[in-house]
Simulated assay, not measured.
Amino acid sequence: MSRHRTTFTVNGQTQCVEIEARRTLAETLRENCGLTGTHVGCEHGVCGACTVLVDDAPMRSCLIFGVQVDGAAIRTIEGLAAADGTLNALQQAFQDHHGLQCGFCTPGFLMLATWMLERPQKITEASLREVMSSNLCRCTGYQGILDAVRAAARRLGRWDDAGAISTPA
């Protein structure tokens, strides 16, 4: 099988890999870059466990080939914490608000929420629920996940209380 040289940046580090054209980005990150935080769940783009940011947009890394990200900037779960291991505000909120149970879906949810927090629009309850509903949690930990993202958005000044809807206590 022919291999292709692909160069991209992952979490600020340049990676140059030789991969088969059929290798997914998830496989490339895990097997060629040694970044195993990106989880592969359904392999059909449904669950969102493999979500990473490609050029600051959320992508299901099981649906894109590694050769397609040539020249791109990719961020994975490994790139969220500070170099000394200090959790960022979102990661800390996930810990504080029990936003994870088994942890399998957590990397995808964190990357999707990171994208939300970095967009220019403030987050409303409606936008939070709409965006986060695209990922699946097999443990049904949705309330903790929503609470965590809401708390991080408030802490970072990204929450819009004007768009609030009533939520159960």
Results as ranks from 00 to 15, higher is better:
residue 31 E to L: 03
residue 59 M to R: 14
residue 64 I to W: 10
residue 71 G to M: 11
residue 55 D to K: 01
residue 82 A to S: 12
residue 35 L to Q: 10
residue 63 L to M: 15
residue 28 T to V: 14
residue 45 G to P: 11
residue 50 C to R: 03
residue 90 L to M: 10
residue 21 A to C: 09
residue 60 R to P: 06
residue 52 V to M: 05
residue 23 R to T: 15
residue 35 L to T: 11
residue 37 G to P: 07
residue 75 R to L: 03
residue 10 V to F: 07
residue 53 L to T: 11
residue 61 S to K: 00
residue 89 A to T: 13
residue 74 I to A: 07
residue 89 A to Y: 04
residue 70 D to I: 01
residue 18 E to W: 08
residue 27 E to A: 12
residue 55 D to W: 06
residue 61 S to F: 02
residue 75 R to G: 03
residue 48 G to N: 05
residue 44 H to D: 12
residue 21 A to M: 00
residue 32 N to Q: 11
residue 37 G to R: 11
residue 81 A to W: 00
residue 28 T to E: 00
residue 92 Q to I: 00
residue 56 D to E: 13
residue 21 A to P: 12
residue 15 Q to M: 05
residue 21 A to V: 03
residue 35 L to N: 09
residue 38 T to H: 06
residue 14 T to E: 13
residue 90 L to D: 10
residue 32 N to Y: 06
residue 87 L to G: 12
residue 54 V to T: 14
residue 80 L to T: 02
residue 17 V to H: 14
residue 31 E to P: 12
residue 54 V to M: 15
residue 94 F to P: 09
residue 73 A to C: 13
residue 85 G to K: 08
residue 41 G to I: 03
residue 46 V to C: 05
residue 15 Q to W: 00
residue 67 V to S: 14
residue 49 A to H: 01
residue 23 R to V: 13
residue 94 F to M: 15
residue 81 A to M: 05
residue 69 V to E: 03
residue 24 T to A: 06
residue 14 T to L: 14
residue 25 L to T: 02
residue 46 V to N: 06
residue 9 T to V: 13
residue 16 C to G: 09
residue 16 C to S: 15
residue 9 T to C: 04
residue 31 E to Y: 10
residue 40 V to T: 08
residue 21 A to E: 15
residue 36 T to K: 04
residue 84 D to F: 01
residue 13 Q to M: 04
residue 96 D to V: 08
residue 86 T to I: 03
residue 98 H to V: 01
residue 57 A to L: 14
residue 91 Q to F: 06
residue 26 A to G: 01
residue 69 V to S: 12
residue 52 V to G: 00
residue 46 V to T: 12
residue 41 G to P: 13
residue 49 A to T: 07
residue 70 D to G: 04
residue 69 V to Y: 04
residue 16 C to K: 11
residue 42 C to P: 13
residue 42 C to I: 01
residue 69 V to D: 03
residue 26 A to D: 10
residue 47 C to E: 11
residue 92 Q to F: 05
residue 62 C to D: 09
residue 74 I to F: 07
residue 37 G to D: 09
residue 34 G to A: 03
residue 60 R to M: 04
residue 67 V to Q: 10
residue 62 C to L: 10
residue 76 T to I: 01
residue 27 E to Q: 14
residue 22 R to A: 01
residue 86 T to N: 05
residue 36 T to L: 13
residue 74 I to L: 15
residue 94 F to E: 10
residue 43 E to G: 11
residue 74 I to K: 12
residue 66 G to N: 07
residue 79 G to N: 03
residue 50 C to A: 02
residue 85 G to R: 04
residue 77 I to L: 10
residue 58 P to G: 04
residue 13 Q to P: 02
residue 34 G to S: 05
residue 57 A to F: 00
residue 28 T to P: 09
residue 54 V to G: 07
residue 87 L to F: 10
residue 68 Q to V: 04
residue 45 G to C: 14
residue 46 V to W: 07
residue 22 R to L: 10
residue 12 G to I: 07
residue 24 T to L: 09
residue 68 Q to F: 00
residue 67 V to G: 11
residue 45 G to T: 08
residue 81 A to T: 02
residue 71 G to R: 13
residue 90 L to I: 07
residue 46 V to A: 15
residue 23 R to C: 09
residue 12 G to S: 12
residue 77 I to T: 02
residue 68 Q to E: 15
residue 73 A to D: 15
residue 71 G to V: 07
residue 19 I to W: 02
residue 26 A to V: 13
residue 20 E to W: 00
residue 65 F to V: 02
residue 52 V to P: 08
residue 34 G to I: 09
residue 63 L to E: 14
residue 48 G to M: 05
residue 68 Q to P: 12
